[in-house]
Structures are given as C-alpha cells and as structure tokens.
Simulated assay, not measured.
Amino acid sequence: MSNLDKVDPREIQMLQQYLNEFGQEIQTYSAQLELLEQRRIESLTAVDTINTIKENPKNTVLLQIGGGASIKVKPVEEDTILLNIGSDVVVEKTCDETASYLTDRATEMEALEKKLTESISNMQKQANEIAKKIENAYKQLQTAQQKQ
C-alpha cells in the first residue's frame, strides 16, 4: 500500500471546508468583540461625562445632534438622566443611578469580551491544527507522487 492510498482527497477537501468555516466564525466573533469594546468604551465615557456634569452642573456639554454635528448645551436638570435600558424603553434616573448602571453594564461587556476572546483563541488553535493536517496530507501526496 503506497502513501498515496493513505491520503484521501475527500478528507483534504473536508478539512479545507472546516478551515474555511473556522475562519468565518473567527471573523464573526472578532466583529462582535469589536462592537462590544466600542459599547463598553461608550458606557465608560458616559460615566465620565455624568461625573463631570455632577461636579460642574453649570458647565456646558456637547450634545450630538446627528450627522457628526454637536451643539453646546447646559443641562436643564443637573441630576436627572434619561437612560435607554433597551427595547426603546427610556427611564429617568439620577446621575449616580445612571453611572452605576452604566458601570455595571461595562463590567458585563468586559466579561463577555473575555469569553469571546477565549472562543476566538480556541477556534484559532483548532484552525491551526486543521491547517497542519492539510499540510501533512499535501506532503504525503507530494512524497507519493515523487516516488512514482
């Protein structure tokens, strides 16, 4: 029995498909990780802004109005924040309550980021193992073809 008989081209094709699927999953998870990181940073930035407003309620803040435009405004109510808690539900909270909520949410997102990073790392390890198997299979094919 020759080395060529040991290497099944269908197996190589199947391994290549697995490798492609891992690549796509890694890309998807990486995009989710990036989005989580952006949201976490936004939450922490909002906490900083809330604390600044609390310390200096008469100062102006920038209010984004869309299209990359902002205006300077003074808060009408220094200790009241309107907070979107999901599904377009907006609640009125104090600065401290809002800062606490956003900090907790940022902590949750950080934990999710760690889980996603672990998943990406595990998928990359599996993809590397598959790539090595493909490489070994091709080497076996080349060796068998050279002996013929």
Rank of each mutant, 00 (worst) to 15 (best):
M1C: 07
S2M: 06
S2C: 06
N3S: 09
L4F: 10
L4T: 07
D5K: 15
K6A: 07
P9Q: 08
I12H: 04
I12A: 06
Q13V: 06
L15T: 02
Q16I: 06
Q16H: 06
L19D: 03
L19W: 05
E21M: 09
E25K: 10
T28Y: 12
S30K: 11
L33C: 03
E34I: 02
L36A: 11
R40M: 15
R40D: 05
R40I: 04
E42Y: 04
T45G: 09
V47D: 00
V47G: 01
T49S: 12
I50S: 02
T52I: 07
E55H: 07
N56R: 10
P57C: 04
P57E: 05
K58T: 14
K58P: 00
N59P: 00
V61W: 02
V61G: 00
I65Q: 07
G67S: 01
G68M: 07
A69R: 15
A69Y: 14
V73D: 02
P75K: 09
V76G: 08
V76H: 10
V76W: 10
E77W: 10
E77D: 14
E77T: 11
T80H: 09
L83H: 03
N84Q: 09
G86R: 10
S87W: 11
V89A: 08
V90Q: 02
V91C: 05
E92R: 13
C95A: 14
C95K: 08
D96F: 03
E97R: 05
A99Y: 08
A99H: 07
Y101E: 08
D104L: 05
R105M: 06
R105H: 08
A106N: 08
T107G: 06
T107L: 10
M109Q: 15
E110H: 15
K114T: 14
K115Y: 05
T117D: 07
E118P: 00
I120Q: 00
S121Y: 05
N122S: 10
M123V: 01
M123D: 03
Q126W: 01
N128L: 05
N128K: 06
N128W: 00
N128S: 12
E129Q: 11
I130D: 00
A131V: 00
K132L: 09
K133P: 00
A137I: 04
K139Y: 13
Q140D: 12
L141P: 02
L141D: 01
L141F: 04
L141T: 11
T143R: 12
T143C: 04
A144W: 09
K147N: 08
Q148I: 13
